[in-house]
Structure formats: structure tokens, C-alpha cells
């Protein structure tokens, strides 16, 4: 056990954690909007729109995240037309490619979580709201949204943790996130166990915090439905 290496690598790894957190938070926020959009499309009665939304989530949930990042980072640059547009400014940066891939991926999972949350709301609640003469906007914000949040919290908490682990794939497209720096230190010192303990410890600490925040929110929204 090389304690000195563990102490020396800790600040470097902690610094890299910032990139991991940045990737995680940006892609979660973008992914939440994508997920909400596709969840609404999934509940649409039009068959074509419904199929499109289902296809999106099926493709992104059925392929590894690594393939998705590689298609976006290595693949899209091949299209000549894209290189001439403004999109190229975004797509040539590995950071933005990773964010696009993560957002689309978590968006697919989030749309499934939100769809099932909205569908489990008993119709009686909406009917009760309507028969009391409550405007539909308020029914949406004061009845549907709180129940949907309550229903989707446990699953969404898991999704956040999965996404935290997913950000480690950013290291495959040259980004120096927590896993990227950990791999760099391992390959220069050949001390995998020590680095794994420190980097894994940081990841576990983050999962622990996410887990507890979700638990607190579950308690807050823990009303009986």
C-alpha cells in the first residue's frame, strides 16, 4: 500500500471531480427537458408521433453509451456538410460531444420514467379536480406534477447515479474527468489498487450524497396517494 501516492493523487483527482460534476449537472438538466418533451410525445394519441418517441427511447436504451459517444464524436465529423455549419464549433469539442451524448441518453431513460409516472396518476384525481371547477393549468401544476414527482423520484434517483457512472465514459474521448485522471495516474505509476481506492471513494461519496438527497425529497413528497 502506497499511502503517499494516495495522498498525492487526492488533490488531482478532486480537481478532476469538478469536470465530472459539470458533465453530470449539465447533461441532467438538458436530459430532463428532453425527457419531459418525449414523455409528452409518448402520451400523444397520434400513432406516428407515439412511435417516433418510442423509437427514440428504444434506440438510446438498447445501445451502449460508448457507441453513442463514438458516433457523435468520431462519426458526425465525417459529414462534410456539418463541418461548414455553425454546429461544427460545438461538435469538434469533445466536451460538448460528451454532453450531447449524455443528455440524449439520460433523456431517453427519463422519458420512460416520467411517462410511467404520469400514467400511474389515477384518473379520479383529475376528475375530482375538474368537477371542483379547478382550471386545468392548476390541475397540472398542483395535482399532476406533485404526484408525478413523488412517483418518479426513486427511479430518477437511480438514473442520476447511473448517469454519474456514465460520465466516466467521457475519458474515452480524451476528457480528463475523474476516471480519465485516475487512469492516467494508474498507467504512469502502475499502482491500480491505491488509485482505485481514492477515485472509487470519491465516486462512492457522490453516490452517497445523491442517495440521501433523493431520500430526503422522497420524505418531503411522501404524501399518500
Amino acid at each position: 500500500m502506497d499511502i503517499e501516492l494516495m495522498i498525492n493523487s487526492f488533490p488531482k483527482l478532486l480537481n478532476a471531480t469538478l469536470i465530472t460534476l459539470k458533465l453530470l449537472s449539465v447533461s441532467l438538466i438538458v436530459g430532463l427537458f428532453i425527457g419531459l418533451g418525449f414523455a409528452i410525445l409518448r402520451m400523444n394519441n397520434n400513432k406516428l408521433i407515439n412511435k417516433f418517441a418510442y423509437g427514440y427511447s428504444y434506440i438510446f436504451r438498447g445501445t451502449p453509451l460508448l457507441v453513442q459517444i463514438f458516433i457523435i464524436y468520431f462519426g458526425l465529423g465525417q459529414i462534410e456538410y456539418l463541418r461548414t455549419t455553425f454546429l461544427w464549433v460545438v461538435l469538434k469539442e469533445p466536451y460538448w460531444c460528451a454532453i450531447i451524448a449524455f443528455s440524449l441518453n439520460t433523456g431517453a431513460y427519463t422519458s420512460e420514467i416520467l411517462r410511467s409516472a404520469f400514467q400511474t396518476i389515477k384518473p379520479g384525481y383529475l376528475e375530482a379536480g375538474r368537477s371542483l371547477g379547478i382550471p386545468s393549468k392548476i390541475i397540472f401544476t398542483k395535482i399532476q406534477i406533485p404526484i408525478a414527482i413523488k412517483q418518479s423520484l426513486p427511479a430518477y434517483g437511480n438514473e442520476i447515479i447511473l448517469m454519474l457512472k456514465g460520465t466516466s465514459l467521457a475519458s474515452t474521448v480524451t476528457l480528463m474527468d475523474l476516471t480519465g485522471v485516475a487512469k492516467y495516474i494508474i498507467s504512469t505509476t502502475f499502482k491500480p489498487v491505491e488509485v482505485f481506492i481514492v477515485a472509487g471513494g470519491i465516486y462512492l461519496f457522490m453516490t452517497f450524497i445523491i442517495h440521501n438527497v433523493i431520500k430526503y425529497l422522497e420524505k418531503k413528497y411522501g404524501f399518500q396517494t
Binding site: 447515479i161 457512472k165 491500480p192 472509487g200
Partner: peptide, 15 residues
């Protein structure tokens, strides 16, 4: 379940 898969793979690959 709390540590990225890639990190576990590096541990076994290098270790």
C-alpha cells in the same frame, strides 16, 4: 454499484 464500470475494468486490467 456506486463506482463506474470503467474504473472497475481498469482496476482488473492493470491490477
Amino acid at each position: 454499484r456506486g463506482v463506474p464500470e470503467l474504473l472497475v475494468i481498469y482496476l482488473f486490467f492493470f491490477g
